[in-house]
Design a protein around this nucleic acid. Structure first.
Lengths: 114, 114
DNA sequence: CATAGCCATCGACACCTGTCAATATCGACG
DNA sequence: CGTCGATATTGACAGGTGTCGATGGCTATG
């Protein structure tokens, strides 16, 4: 136990290789839930496509017509799922995308029959 | 408009190439929402890993300790998201996985910086 | 036509989730 | 130390979602 979501995904075979166990599914789902919201998907894309793969919260707030607590909440969900890393520098907080998390997820979903 | 979820995903650049627009995000999210449930993730894995990439509903019902309407509901969600195709053969209904949908999603998520 | 079996739909309920306003925390700077 | 600005947390609320029992539609078979 105490596996991070990313670790839970990284050790799984692709979906079409063998039936996923209930335990594995429940460990993986938090990452997919984190992605399954339009605001969070855009936040992740904003950070991942930003210069250096990181972005300041202040910039992210300005990109949406949503309250600051709402953006903070979504960033927390993405961070909790292991999709974003967090670093505080002075007064500002920077979020950085996690390529390993993304590629693990992609490997889980990707087709392996070809 | 009237794009299927799969078409909406297939024409998108990877998340880390450029910020996702709100419209694109909202079109993609239904597929991710469909995946973001442990029962549906296992259902998809069961079908995708099954011989021939298809499985009968009767087999899927037996794999879970859930009511038949609940499984039917989850299959409908996966079908609506374009992740499963549906075919009725006589009394039985078969669901088949959609490799193109899966690989489109994987391409969206996968890292392209390496 | 009657029955039986497979699957879908409906209606109801408890629970989860996205959002906001208000407030707290924390670091920088006079 | 007091203030200000950047983020996070809390509490509350509306709407969404997973589950079930009951029921309906369809198809094969007597």
């Amino acid at each position: 136990m105490a596996l991070t979501p990313v670790e839970a995904v990284a050790c799984c075979l692709p979906l079409n290789r063998e039936p996923l166990s209930q335990e594995a599914a429940e460990r993986i789902v938090p990452m997919l839930k984190a992605l399954a919201d339009p605001v969070r998907l855009r936040l992740l894309s904003l950070v991942a496509s930003h210069e250096g793969g990181e972005a300041c919260v202040c910039d992210l707030n300005d990109a949406f017509e949503l309250s600051q607590p709402t953006i903070s909440h979504h960033l927390k969900v993405l961070h909790g799922a292991g999709l974003l890393e967090r670093e505080k520098r002075g007064v500002w907080v920077y979020y950085r995308s996690s390529p390993s998390a993304m590629s693990s997820l992609a490997a889980l979903i990707s087709d392996t029959t070809t």
